[in-house]
């Protein structure tokens, strides 16, 4: 309970579909069992790339601000948006820089490759070890529940609408079995030249 990863609570999940990806998070911010805010999104958009961060809330803010700065600097130097796979390596090396005093976050990256349009998702541990996945990535205090949901609901080549339904059902059912996550959700569906963001209400308890 006093692990820095489970003080504030929160959950995040990303999924691959057919020519699309989805990433979703809950909205709770708590102090142990007490809920402080029900409007604390954990997904951040940097150009065409999406970063989900769960873990210690202070580090969620610090790390998201840090990558906003780094991605902006990249765009100024390169005069183009950062690609998801490049960003993943940036996340990895930035986290490993703090190998012996880590940020207590479990990041998730999702996006479409700007050249090939191929879906890209990956997850990390708090010191930057990348977990490349072909199907889905989960993180946060509801990660076990999310593993169970995703492993049973997900199937290959889902279209954007079916992918939205799948990721939403997976996240909502998972956070309902975790006392530290929930209180609404954000869901992003990323297609070529189109991003749809939806707000889910979910259970308020």
């Amino acid at each position: 309970m006093s692990s820095p990863f489970s003080i504030n609570g929160g959950a995040c999940v990303a999924m691959v579909g057919k020519d699309c990806v989805a990433i979703a998070c809950d909205l709770r911010l708590g102090l142990q069992a007490l809920t402080v805010s029900n409007n604390f999104p954990k997904i951040f958009q940097y150009g065409d790339v999406f970063l989900g961060l769960t873990g210690l809330a202070t580090d969620v803010s610090t790390v998201s601000d840090l990558f906003r700065y780094k991605v902006n600097m990249y765009r100024l130097r390169e005069e183009r948006n950062i690609a998801p796979s490049t960003f993943a390596n940036l996340v990895s090396s930035s986290l490993y820089e703090r190998r012996f005093g880590p940020y207590f976050v479990s990041p998730v990256v999702a996006g479409l490759d700007p050249k090939s349009g191929r879906p890209f998702i990956c997850g990390f541990d708090s010191i930057g070890c990348i977990d490349f996945a072909k199907d889905f990535i989960v993180s946060g205090t509801a990660s076990e529940q999310l593993f169970g949901m995703c492993e049973s609901l997900w199937e290959p080549d889902l279209g954007p609408d079916d992918l939205f339904e799948t990721i939403s059902q997976a996240l909502l059912s998972a956070v309902d079995r975790d006392a530290l996550s929930g209180w609404g959700a954000h869901v992003y569906i990323v297609e070529k030249d189109k991003v749809t963001k939806r707000l889910l209400k979910g259970r308020q308890d």
Binding site: I7, V36, S37, N39, A57, S61
Partner: peptide, 22 residues
């Protein structure tokens, strides 16, 4: 804005700190 000693920041419509929260 609610801000604790861990520097967790949350914009909120109303807030309290310490035992007053409960």
């Amino acid at each position: 804005f609610w801000l604790d000693y861990l520097a967790a920041l949350a914009p909120v419509p109303y807030a309290a700190h310490g035992y007053a929260q409960y």
